[in-house]
Amino acid sequence: MPVLLRDRLFLVWVLLVAVTLLSSQIGGSSGVAWIGSPAAVTVAVLSIALAKVWMVMFTYMDVRGAPLALRVLVTAWVAIVLTALLAIYFGALS
């Protein structure tokens, strides 16, 4: 077990699984009663999803060791997609 606790990729997996279970609890109609409003649920589950995407790219894809340009590109892509999806959800294009 101590070996696993020093294993960065395994610890990332634990974190990803934990936030997946959390977002699964938050999401859907059952989560609305728990968290308050549908909008809050959506902001939470999409933010968690894109944070997971960033984490998969930086750790599993090893972008963290990549040149600055790729790290910036990946982070900007994640931020733009999250912003765009939330803006559309809140009716920016309707």
Binding site: S23, S24, I26, G27, G28, S29, G31, V32, P38, A39, V41, T42, V45, L46, I48, A49, L50, K52, V53, V56, M57, Y60, M61, D62, V81, Y89
Partner: peptide
């Protein structure tokens, strides 16, 4: 091998967003 691995991780991260959109968004 790294390229193949990155392709697989992309498959994973696309599903992460699909799961959130189709199953969780309210």
């Amino acid at each position: 091998i790294e390229s193949g691995g990155c392709f697989w991780h992309m498959v994973d991260l696309l599903w992460i967003v699909i799961f959130a959109l189709l199953y969780l968004v309210e």
